[in-house]
Design a protein around this nucleic acid. Structure first.
Lengths: 238, 238
DNA sequence: TCTGATTTGTTCGTATGTATG
DNA sequence: ACATACATACGAACAAATCAG
């Protein structure tokens, strides 16, 4: 007998969540009634209700008594292009730079990261961990990796300004651009979950990227950890 | 008292997984010894071993008796550009078209999808669910949404050819291109987990995209559900 | 305005399995 | 072995809001 580690309401939640996040059921659309869903999934209405309550907590739907359950608006989009920066999001949302430095540590460069930053394997790196928020429900946990030889002390500049763009300007980097981006997802680390106010069993989207200056010289390797569903990463390929 | 739903080895696993996936510890690098890790996390060596065993099962590390634990190669990259297609991956991996149609259903278009496909809200859609694999450990679960008026019966063509590119050719669509892509992540639906051979608590990356023909006319709206860590989505912004 | 049907919200009760001590 | 607590799931009933006629 296979033990049923996963409650039924969780499976129902996955089903509905997938349909909503895919857009098959769009903002403003009405979900089938609780009774209909209970019949469709062959469960009690209570079981459907716990699933719906969770979706409401995630901000995906809103229930209105006497009317039904309706799909909420989609999350804001984060467009990936040469000018992708978190500070752009903050500007777009009319939020001030909010970078809070949680830690700044040193470590040697792995071959992968050395390749990204045009450094020798084992070269000393500066790893800066921050939490930033553009809105109450729009937080990211970031790792920024710098060549310590060139950017020693940049963590202090970020502490003061709350912005990497501003901090980099103090190091003579006037403009820089997104060169490459990799996207993956995983479960959060304990401190990420705590800082982002999400449970340990909610997945996170991870955006890894290399920023370069106008001359093509690598500036930083960054990782942005984003709670699932709070931001929709978008790429236009014209 | 906060209830401790998550075992310690799971937290340790998240920590190590994050470092590996980010590239901070790269392919070929050696992890700290089990004893070192046990000390660092202040747990017994057995606890560390369960975490490491799981990482090995995920294909992230490989333990060698008497030598240590080493990071495995990174997953293959899936580059997003105008020519992004699953058939390109298959060609790259020397795999034959392997599309297996699991279901083909009809449903009315939501406002979001109607916008993607230049249709009226409520227009009839054809939703084709498939599983495709380019390698044993490289499966995707796909949803393809078509204008039923234009592409009625395309599910049969996919059943025969195993490829959407080939099936579309039968409908007079010679060439088409990726126009926009959105990326998100979530927990899998039960049938997705089963078809992809992943547990229900492993997150999936979801790639949503609109393909258009050379004239800019929308062809399809697709969703690719990818097991976390099996593929690295990459975007170059030159 | 009234009526009835539909839908969500709330509160009982019952039963079962699992983890804890 | 036993008691307790908790999460899960089902069933019934009713209250409150909404809408169509």
């Amino acid at each position: 007998m296979a033990k049923n580690r996963f409650p039924i309401w969780r499976l129902i939640q996955s089903e509905l969540e997938a349909e909503i996040r895919s857009g098959l059921i769009g903002p403003g659309d009405q979900l089938p009634s609780e009774s209909d869903l209970a019949e469709r999934f062959a469960v009690n209405r209570h079981t459907v209700r716990t699933a719906l309550a969770n979706l409401a907590m995630l901000g995906l739907v809103r229930a209105r008594r006497g009317r039904g359950v309706f799909v909420d608006d989609r999350p804001p989009e984060y467009r990936i292009d040469r000018d992708s920066k978190w500070s752009e999001i903050e500007r777009q949302m009319n939020a001030a730079p909010s970078g809070r430095v949680l830690a700044a540590t040193e470590r040697p460069a792995s071959a992968v990261i050395a390749g990204f930053l045009d450094l020798a394997e084992g070269a000393p790196l500066l790893l800066v961990e921050t939490v930033r928020g553009a809105a109450p429900a729009l937080l990211i946990y970031s790792y920024h990796v710098f060549d310590r030889g060139r950017f020693a002390g940049i963590d202090e500049a970020v502490r003061k300004t709350g912005s990497f763009t501003d901090a980099l300007a103090q190091f003579g980097v006037g403009r820089f651009f997104r060169a490459s981006t990799w996207i993956d997802c995983r479960m959060p680390r304990p401190r990420e979950a705590e800082a982002l106010s999400i449970p340990l069993d909610a997945p996170v989207l991870v955006m890894m990227y290399v920023d370069k200056d106008a001359g093509g010289r690598p500036i930083l390797y960054g990782n942005a950890v984003i709670p699932s569903g709070s931001l929709l990463v978008r790429i236009d390929t014209l």
